[in-house]
Design a binder for these strands. Structure first.
Lengths: 215, 215
DNA sequence: TAAGATTCGTGATACCTTCTAACTGAATCT
DNA sequence: AGATTCAGTTAGAAGGTATCACGAATCTTA
């Protein structure tokens, strides 16, 4: 396919610098949050002066978009490799939780408060549908004996988002519940909303997951 | 109690300007998000020049904190008056959803991505416990026939956050599930994560609520 | 190998932002 | 009436994004 030798040394240098920029960006985001990300600060940390960074990323937005893309990619890969290793829905849930706790701001970059005007490029939407596919597969593999709800009927007519996945409405419903419920616990935990209360969020997560699997 | 005459005309003017500043702030937040809130822009919109605003709010953080406080207050009032009007858990859920859809950024200001360093003042924490109390009351009023889970046992020993509320562990558990599940659907909807998929989020919300009430 | 083209990094600059400081003028208090 | 308080102004520091023009290093090509 492509030339094996990672192309010219200049491009190698270029991609390496881009990677280094992203590493500093992640470090900064982890401590200050994405909204306070400063290209200037990154440049100084790397020993070069301000505008030099714009040779590698056209704008702050472009860098953040790339970070979002990488975050999605990382989550999709985590789930995919878990699924390949034979993970069931429960294992998938714990994989997501582990991934989120590894770097809370990375999770929140994807699923947290969005900037009103921002629209993710199509390739990112594609990755998110990859994730949904893994989820749907895992839900399909689960026995489903719950009665059809009104929402199930609605989903029978609104299943474009599942692409060509042959899952029945009940499975689509389960996938959505899985997503929203675990996100509910996880996002509140990561946002620190459970801070004062001293119960263990992991147990709430487990309880929600159990309820999801047995009902 | 206090002097009825809303105090001196100067203080009246002061509080009126503070209110006007907050109104402009909310308008700005609704369109640009809280992270892009600009004191300068607000000042210009009000026909006064930049630094004048610092007579009313010592810093950008102080203004945002006040907005957060007002948001919490508004949500607490909404829930409280609904409860007083005899709302059950389902009605409470719809009250929350209505309140959130009224101004998505206001909801996300409370429950969205937090700034890592930020710590809300105590009086805000107090309002949030007010909300929790209304929720616990509504959960108590509901029949509860589910078997005790391991998480229930854990909650029996970690119930400080419920204050002096006499709710049994199963009710505490239900309140937490109520909170996290509805937040799960709501936050993903408000964040636009359901954008591509064309199902109706209201029906997913209703389905989650129904599941919460019947199981 | 030498010339030409490309690309990297720099400093200068424009225009934002938050926020402090010094000053003016008007309203309020004594 | 005189003193004080307080709103609002301009100026400016410090820091941010982003563009531009220029020197310097490197790659390509003849």
């Amino acid at each position: 396919m492509a030339k094996m030798d990672t192309k010219t040394p200049r491009e190698r240098y270029r991609t390496q610098v881009r990677a280094e920029i992203k590493e500093h960006a992640w470090a900064q985001i982890a401590t200050t949050g994405a909204s306070a990300l400063s290209l200037n600060a990154i440049a100084k940390q790397m020993g070069m002066s301000g505008p030099a960074l714009y040779r590698y990323y056209a704008s702050r937005d472009e860098l953040i978009t790339e970070l979002i893309r990488d975050a999605y990619r990382s989550l999709a890969d985590t789930l995919h490799s878990a699924a390949v290793a034979g993970a069931d829905l429960a294992a998938l849930a714990h994989a997501v939780r582990g991934w989120a706790l590894e770097d809370p701001q990375r999770y929140l970059l994807i699923y947290g408060t969005p900037v009103p005007g921002y629209h993710a490029p199509d390739d990112i939407t594609l990755i998110s549908s990859e994730i949904m596919t893994v989820l749907l597969d895992a839900c399909t593999a689960l026995p489903s004996d719950s009665p059809a709800t009104p929402f199930d009927a609605h989903l029978a007519d609104h299943r474009d988002w599942a692409g060509s996945h042959p899952a029945p409405p009940a499975v689509l419903h389960r996938a959505l519940s899985f997503w929203t419920r675990l996100h509910g616990v996880l996002s509140l935990e990561l946002a620190g909303q459970f801070a004062g209360m001293d119960f263990d969020p992991a147990l709430l997560f487990a309880a929600e997951l159990d309820d999801l699997l047995t009902h």
